[in-house]
Amino acid sequence: MLEIKNLVVQIEDKRILNGLNLTVNNGEVAAIMGPNGSGKSTLSYVIAGKEDYEVLDGEIILDGQNLLEMEPDQRAAAGVFLAFQYPLEIPGVASMTFLKAAMNAQRKSRGQDELSTPDFIKRVNAAAAKLEIPKDMLKRALNVGFSGGEKKRMEILQMALLEPTFCILDETDSGLDIDALRIVSEGVNALRSPDRSFLVITHYQRLLNHIVPDTVHVMSAGRVVKSGGKELALELEANGYADYRESEAA
């Protein structure tokens, strides 16, 4: 279970999150929607542990562990996974080298043995096949020269291999065509389980047709201003964020 209490965050003296509260239960898929600039991506970075943000107040507790006291790699080992909105290209680091380093690092921190090379390759190939990732893509440097869709599939591949307990999808639907959206969504749905929860950040209802959420939260001006079931997303799609922008001004 993830619990965020009264989270206040700024970057370069600009307040982005203003006392945000959010709870995501085990096995729950929570969608976060909201207008541009409402702090959705900041929230995802702060959970994952990006340095640029200054946390002024509040706490983030995952399964009883205080994430704010941990380095990003420790948070990953504790179960956090952030699927980036813009996955980074890393020239010179082969995708397979990267995957192996990540999987073994997490295994090591959990006290497990490193994977043997055949076992590692078997796991990668099985997971890649499900996401329709061709083998030659894995031979290239990480994300270098990948299309938008390939990069997002690569993110979900990592999610599948690292088996996190709390997954954040930061606008995973951006830049995806219809087929890629289906493949990525199926990949995510396949990972849904009673002990894995998801925070799905998106602007559009479209993604939520594929990844059906249990709860929907509306963010505005750095806070969750309304929470509800999946019907809330449909309501937003019909009426837009106008109502919530007013609350921002007030």
Partner: peptide, 24 residues
Amino acid sequence: EDLLFYLMARGIPKKEAESLLIQA
């Protein structure tokens, strides 16, 4: 820093993440 964060967000400790980038 952004590349380091990306690698660390996958569970790779800082020193190892730096090593990967230096090797590259």
